[in-house]
């Protein structure tokens, strides 16, 4: 028991880094999701194609390889990121690609009658999206965003492989320096990750309940 209590304060700085990576990459993923999600439903086929290539590329390849690319390979092209920034960019682009599918699906889930009514009221394309479609689609998206943010938290552990001292990295250091701590370290890692995830899980459940309010039925 003592071992468990000893470990906790030594894990905390790593937990802080993990939460920072989580928040920063979630913010990036959110922006990317909307840009790419709107791109996927654009009326210009060239925009649809470019965003489709991006989404499939980032969904279809390994996040770990993307991370290595951004951290180890891009410097060869003169682009150098700090470990933190490389982690945030890789996670943001990867999970943003997944989340853009949530955005796209939600936009398409708003019944076509809403689009037709806004055309009949002579709204512009952008007004229709901003005033009518997105406010309804947003409610449909939220549970999906909640789930992806939980996935994203779990994905942050990979940044330990590009020398960022996050929660996982801290745990591995403790375990390496004192092998008798192996069991307590890995138990405490699970516990701390779960504690960070808990608010996200509760939020996602709540959003799921409210998702259908204020959305037109097909």
């Amino acid at each position: 028991m003592e071992a468990y209590i000893n470990i906790l304060p030594r894990l905390l700085p790593g937990a802080v880094i993990t939460v920072q990576v989580l928040l920063a990459s979630a913010a990036l993923a959110f922006v990317v999701a909307f840009v790419a999600g709107l791109g996927r439903v654009s009326k210009y086929s060239i925009v649809r194609k470019i965003t489709a290539v991006y989404v499939e590329l980032f969904r279809g390849t390994s996040l770990l390889v993307q991370l290595f690319w951004i951290y180890f390979a891009l410097p060869a092209f003169g682009i150098q990121f700090s470990p933190f920034l490389a982690g945030v960019v890789a996670l943001g682009l990867n999970y943003g690609a997944y989340a853009s599918e949530v955005v796209r699906g939600a936009i398409l889930a708003v019944p076509s009658g809403q689009t037709e009514a806004s055309i009949a009221l002579n709204m512009s394309n952008w007004q229709r999206m901003r005033l009518i479609i997105l406010p309804q689609a947003f409610r449909i998206m939220l549970p999906g965003f909640g789930n992806i943010s939980i996935e994203l938290l779990k994905g942050t552990s990979l940044v330990s492989l590009i020398t960022l001292t996050d929660l996982t990295y801290k745990g591995l250091i403790i375990q390496n320096t004192n092998l008798s701590y192996t069991m307590p370290v890995f138990v405490m890692l699970l516990v701390v990750y779960f504690i960070i995830a808990l608010p996200l899980i509760i939020l996602a459940k709540k959003l799921e309940k409210n998702a259908s309010r204020g959305v037109a039925k097909a």
Binding site: G113, Q114, E116, A117, A120, L121, N122, M123, S124, Q127, L131, I132, P135, Q136, R139, G214, V215, A216
Partner: peptide, 24 residues
């Protein structure tokens, strides 16, 4: 006017009727 009304469910009745006059 449509068969299935197509009102905007996320807006009050008043806003359903004022939205286009304001923005369009």
């Amino acid at each position: 006017v449509f068969q299935h009304f197509n009102l905007f469910p996320h807006m009050t009745i008043l806003r359903n009727v004022t939205e286009a006059p304001i923005h369009v």
